[in-house]
Amino acid sequence: MITAVSIALYAAAAFFAAVLGVTAEQFKNGVDKKKADSRFALALSAMSFLMAAALQVFA
């Protein structure tokens, strides 16, 4: 069960990292002017990855 949760959290981290990449490309091309979206995606990506890593280490 712990492995399934960790895999789901790693998948969520990968998804949020992809969202961060898309937002960065939009910002670079001048399409998106909001920095809040990228900060939110970065925070969610980091939190998901850290939760999954902590679950694997401490469980």
Rank of each mutant, 00 (worst) to 15 (best):
I2E: 10
T3P: 02
T3A: 04
A4I: 08
A4H: 09
A4Q: 13
A4N: 12
V5N: 04
V5P: 00
V5M: 09
V5T: 06
S6F: 02
S6K: 05
A8K: 08
A8Q: 07
L9W: 00
Y10A: 07
Y10L: 13
A11D: 08
A13T: 04
F15H: 03
F16Y: 12
A17R: 06
A17K: 05
A17Y: 10
A17I: 08
A18Y: 15
V19R: 11
V19K: 07
L20A: 12
L20K: 07
V22N: 07
T23Y: 05
E25K: 05
E25W: 11
Q26E: 11
F27W: 10
F27V: 04
F27C: 04
K28C: 04
K28N: 12
K28P: 01
N29E: 14
G30F: 09
V31P: 00
D32N: 15
D32F: 03
D32A: 13
K33L: 09
K33P: 07
K34D: 15
K35P: 01
K35I: 13
K35C: 07
A36F: 14
A36G: 05
A36W: 14
D37M: 10
S38F: 13
S38M: 14
R39P: 00
R39S: 11
F40S: 06
F40N: 05
L42S: 13
L42V: 09
L42Q: 06
A43M: 13
A43P: 04
A43R: 08
A43G: 13
L44E: 05
A46P: 02
A46H: 01
M47I: 14
M47L: 15
F49T: 04
L50R: 00
M51F: 10
M51A: 15
A52R: 04
A52F: 03
A52W: 04
A53I: 01
A53Y: 05
A54T: 07
A54P: 00
L55I: 08
L55V: 02
L55S: 03
L55C: 02
Q56S: 14
Q56E: 14
F58K: 06
F58W: 14
F58M: 14
